[in-house]
Amino acid sequence: MRENVRKLLYMDKRIVYLLMALAIAIPMFMPLGLPVRIPKSAQDFYDEIEKLNERDIVWIAAEINPANQAEFEPAIKAIFRHCLSKNLRIAVAAFYPQGANLAATWSADLVAEFGAVYGVDYINLGPRPSTSQDSIMDNARRDIIDAYSDRDNYGNPLSSYQIMADLQKASDVSLAVIFTQGSPGCAEYIANWQSTGDLMHMITVAAAVQIPVENPRYQAGMLQGMLGGMTGGAAYEKLIGHLGSATKGLDSQGLGHLLIVVLLIVGNACYFILKNLDEKAKTEAGGRS
């Protein structure tokens, strides 16, 4: 028995990799279609956008990098769909180098679908170095065009766009949607814009690893809504009535989680069986000598 357990515990790790690949891939071809639960934080997130009036400006802090594509792309798409369908205006900004471009790439289809006009219905302020985040955000409290050196993501003068007439300072923003996976993220926006009273309404899309950090801020009311990871994205897709890649991905994520739990149980069971057998063998060997 000991040899069999040992073989199982020390099996080729490529078998584990294969199992994980299957757990992720199978639901992509055969969706389980399990019902998606809507947590209160996701409902609050949705409600905050619903409360806005037509032509209000939503600030999307695209603190995104490619590693979080699976979690953030569905959320960006759903937020653009929700905002554009409500005739809201969108301003995208980022302190992560690729955040602004990724947001532009992921939202391109939605912008085309709703016929949104750049500079009128939405604008991309582009990335700025995260090391200057505090000075830029503080300056943006008074003058966004100056804080962004009068240049958008594509090097064109911000002041030439119609939307900027209504987006001169932080308090002109009606709601900030902050994508966060660490720093810069919610903490910086809260410190620079919320604590100063310029912008009180903030909601977040948090990467799964960031949920424990942002949840206390959501509970304290600093953040009025929160989408957590792919689960939050799927809940939001359900709320806006347009199921997308988060809903599809949730089956894969679920089976992946389940596999890890099974591996943990099997791994620990093998470990304790081996330990008991070894101790028993030692005791027997001691008795004989």
């Binding site: 389980l32 399990l34 019902p35 998606v36 639960r37 799964a208 957590g228 990871g229 689960t231 949730l250 089956d251 994520q253 679920g254 089976l255 989680h257 389940l258 890890i260 739990v261």
Partner: peptide, 10 residues
């Protein structure tokens, strides 16, 4: 891990 996904609730 199981609470975060629908399969856990199932």
């Amino acid at each position: 891990m199981l609470g975060a996904v629908p399969i856990g609730e199932m």
